[in-house]
């Protein structure tokens, strides 16, 4: 009885998340591939455990309010890397800003058009609208536009992994060798996962990516609710 209660409380959910995250980080560092981004391993571990122990997802979710509460301050914390990399704008100027603005609109629009062609339902379309925005901003946005949180998180993570994996070889294929262009493109399309990948390539590539991610996220957060509500 005591054990049963414990399984459904925060005292179980929080250590579970923490341990799964640590295992995820360990495997990510060991493997060195974005396919094993901590969130991928960690979410698989948690989902498998909840399933085996027969714990409803809603119980786990409700016991994790502490983690949700920290998402807001984490979004605010994004301002710090943004400020640190603001100097890149001064050098790259308007082409950078234009690309970020276009990319912020392009990424979700292309995805939504493809989903429409495949006949997706409204819930999928809404969740896709925040696909290339960094997860904490995407979740805050999802709440505003009433998109499903889990679906949004899943789409954002998948987008990040696909973008971070495909980005570098794709640009080589296009004959673009400038690592700063690669950084910006990764930041716009693959948010934090892409930025982690960019930092592996070079510090400059990572700085460009962090900057593009932050600006793209802020821009989407400013514009998207206006489009959805009208």
């Amino acid at each position: 009885m005591v054990v049963a209660n414990w399984l459904h409380s925060s005292l179980f959910a929080l250590p579970l998340s923490l341990v799964a995250f640590c295992i995820g980080v360990y495997f990510y560092r060991r493997s060195g591939t974005v396919l094993l981004h901590p969130i991928v391993t960690a979410s698989l571990i948690v989902a498998a455990l909840l399933h085996t122990l027969n714990i409803p997802y809603s119980d786990y979710q409700h016991s994790s309010t502490l983690l949700y509460a920290l998402l807001g301050p984490a979004v605010v914390a994004l301002a710090v890397p943004l400020k640190q990399n603001l100097a890149v704008i001064r050098r790259a100027g308007w082409p950078l800003l234009v690309t970020i603005a276009v990319g912020a609109v392009l990424a979700p629009v292309v995805a939504i058009i493809i989903a429409l062609l495949f006949g997706a339902g409204e819930s999928v379309l809404l969740a896709l609208s925040g696909k290339s925005v960094t997860t904490p901003i995407a979740l805050a946005l999802a709440e505003k536009i009433h998109a499903a949180l889990s679906l949004t998180a899943g789409i954002v993570v998948l987008t990040g992994v696909v973008g971070a994996l495909a980005g570098p070889p794709l640009l080589t294929l296009l004959g673009i060798r400038d690592k700063r262009i690669l950084g910006v493109v990764l930041g716009i399309n693959a948010h934090a996962v892409g930025t982690a990948r960019a930092f592996e390539i070079s510090a400059l590539c990572g700085a460009c990516s962090a900057l593009a991610m932050g600006l793209c996220g802020a821009l989407t957060a400013l514009v998207l609710p206006l489009i959805i509500s009208s």
């Binding site: 969130i39 979410s43 984490a74």
Partner: peptide, 15 residues
């Protein structure tokens, strides 16, 4: 960050 949005990401497996 990945730890903070872990609860939301796990939900994908329970849709």
């Amino acid at each position: 960050l990945p730890l903070l949005f872990l609860p939301a990401a796990v939900g994908v497996f329970f849709l």
